[in-house]
Write a protein that binds this DNA or RNA. Sequence first.
RNA 1: GGAGCCUUAGCUCAAUUGGUUAGAGCGCUGCCCUGUCACGGCAGAGGUUGCGGGUUCGAGUCCCGUAGGCUCCGCCA
Length: 613
Amino acid sequence: MRCISPLAKRAAAHKLRALFPAMYRTKTCNDLRKDHIGQTVTLCGWVNSRRDHGGVIFIDLRDRDGLTQVVFRPEEHPQVSEASHALRSEDVIQIVGQVCARLEGSGNAKLATGDIEVIASKLRVLNKAEVPPFPLDDPKVNEDLRLEYRYLDLRTAPMLRNLRMRHRIVKTTRDYLDERGFLEIETPVLSNPTPEGARDFLVPSRLNPGTFYALPQAPQQYKQLLQVAGLEKYFQIARCFRDEDLRADRQPEFTQIDVEASFIDDVEIQTLIEGLLVRIFREAKGVEIPAPFPRMTYADAMNRYGSDKPDTRFGLELVDVADVFRDSQFKVFRTILDGGGVLKAINAKGAAAHLSKEQLKKWEEWVKTEFGAKGLAYIKWSVGGEWESPIVKFFSDAEKAALAERMGFVEGDVLFFGADKLEPACEVLGRVRLRCADLLGLVDDTKLNFLWVVDFPLLAFSPEEQKHVAVHHPFTRPNADDVALLEAGEYRKVRAVAYDVVLNGVELGGGSIRIHERALQAKIFEVLGVGPEEQEVKFGHLLKAFSFGAPPHGGIALGLDRLVMLIAGASSIREVIAFPKNNRGVDLMTHSPVEVDFKQLREVYIQSTAKKG
RNA sequence: GGAGCCUUAGCUCAAUUGGUUAGAGCGCUGCCCUGUCACGGCAGAGGUUGCGGGUUCGAGUCCCGUAGGCUCCGCCA
């Protein structure tokens, strides 16, 4: 290597300085229009593409704002043009040049800057680039490759657009809540494990051997304690952590728009959130969504749509046909009905042409293996054909007539039945409903169907644990009208003051009015099987706080990632997170999580029991 | 914990019923080209068909195992 003296280096640097203006750039690649013709500008960016004609060379220069065509003309700037032959995709360059009108008829209507071009008089290569491992503008490239080189993937227009949109949504949220007197307050990331709900991520404490923090699943207790603290209106763009298996719309760390307020009822919170969503959709997507949103009770949602987050963009509702078969000779239906179960059906209009007998068999297999259903009864009525079904032979003529009448069953349709206890019957049929809608193309992508699902049950019985568990969380307020039921031990009939906001069949968020009285909270813990001692150990601080004048309060949390995903029209939550993890919780770029050496573990008093493959 | 689908050149894919030397487009390299914008032309390089084993005269193709990716069920308030 040649040794260059520091003096010579400085001289060279000065020379470069003299060659280029002090600023890296005077314009971005989306700034220049006809008005700028004649100006001398400096641009920086990446070589998006080059078109080398041997003589004249065109470069599309890209920065995060857009593309500008740069022209290297040998007859005007021979040295610079010569150097430009070496430019390759993704090289980072700086050019100085004059803004010129494009030659007659050579404008590019696809580019915002397509009326002009910059004739380069100076070129500085700021950094050469290796050949990219995949074409940046190809949407078909495998996602794992994009995730490994996420910093390249994020250079593409769709990803930039998503991140901008996410920023806009967060900014709008802060503005909106600030205007209404909400204070953004940070809560600890190192906090306590929670006995209820999802698995915690644990963090060992070096200073307190053998003890652990947990990363928060949500800032639930802190947001309530801030109400006891008299802050009255709190919000936070809060990172949350749950160590559970992942899905296309679930990451181990995700972000919630977390809101809590005092002296507020459920309708007020819903109205606040409707206003927020209206504003977000206006500013991020440019659409006006109507508010207030429709309300639907949990019972209605289950009975009509087989889901607690119904997609109401299409009908295909569940219909109760129990009375038709009340006295049926068909034992399967009869046994379930006599045992207090329900019998429901949906009519997939026109589905007969789409579903062969083999496919119907596969659907039955699907509900059995995926959802543990006992079966999926169906009747297919092909155009010009008979009722095809393994079960119609058990139906009387009167039952058949009544069924067809009730369901509007005509040639070309397929009926599906759900027969079981209420919730499993509805849920399975709800899944079949979604699949039918997909099959029949019933989903209108342009619709934005918001709704509130309200009156959730407070408690559900867990067969695994053989006890009652909180449907929402243990701090949820029971409906005042149902307190007598609570006292009487009719736990499953007690409704909660809890609400979910749903968009197109996706749960955007949920919240509740909380319990603020120590005695009522203790009563709920008792029902949940949390004894006085356990209450004291795990929730003592909260119960103590409630004894010092806790105001009535409630709140909600919205899943920011899902919201951005829906607004951006992305199919996966990973498309709206800068550096997401894959479905095994691995960051393919950094390879996180990684093994740590023995010494690092010893410092925090941890010994791994993992068996090495 | 379970189910399904996928893995062939840098990328996206093809390869008939198991049959010759595994192909194409894009990208890349070199040369040519002065108005392109998916520039064009000519030439070239590039392969352990994820990995391991088996069946077979013969395996990208069939079987078993395994790794990785995606989707879903359970799980996730």
